[in-house]
Structure formats: structure tokens, C-alpha cells
Amino acid sequence: MSLSREDVEKVSLLSRLKLSEDELVVMTDQMSRIIDYIDLLSEVNTDDVEPMTHAVEQFNVFADDVVHQSLPRDEALANAPKRDDECFHVPAVLGD
């Protein structure tokens, strides 16, 4: 398997996901298969291919620095699971 159980544990920690023992086993298997599938690409000979940084051949898409109307605050906060009149609420963040 291309991914170890430790790899999956680390990624789940970075993603703030708590996986059970069973889920870890399933995820390790599924994610390994995804990685293996993508690894097929490494079989392609890319010697004469320019590195690509973007899927679309498009460059220099800019907007002018002109202020547009922002959302009314009530709409901005509408989807928040927890809020007051001004702010989103999240569980206490300790330190910085």
C-alpha cells in the first residue's frame, strides 16, 4: 500500500478530522488506491513536455481596484451555526 496508517493519521489531524480505528483502516485502503491510480501518470514519458502550472492556458486575469458593494451583514452571517449581531462565533481559540 502506498500510504501508511501513520500518513492517514497525520492528514486527518491536519484536516481536523477524528477518525475511528475502523475508519482509519478503510481510509488507508481507499486513499492508497486513489494515490496508486494517480501514480499511473508517472508511467508517462514527460521528457519533452514543458512543465504546466495551470490547467487552462490563460494568463493575467485582473480586475480593477474599484470597490463593489459588500454583502449586508445579516446575509454574510446567515449561514453561521452560531453568531451574534456582528460576528461569527467559534469555540474558544486558545492563544494565537
Binding site: E86, F88, H89, V90, P91, V93, L94
Partner: peptide
């Protein structure tokens, strides 16, 4: 310290 943090 236990209260929610507010986000702007």
C-alpha cells in the same frame, strides 16, 4: 476564557 471567540 471559556466563552466563544468572535470572528470578524
Amino acid at each position: 476564557g471559556k466563552a466563544d471567540s468572535r470572528i470578524d
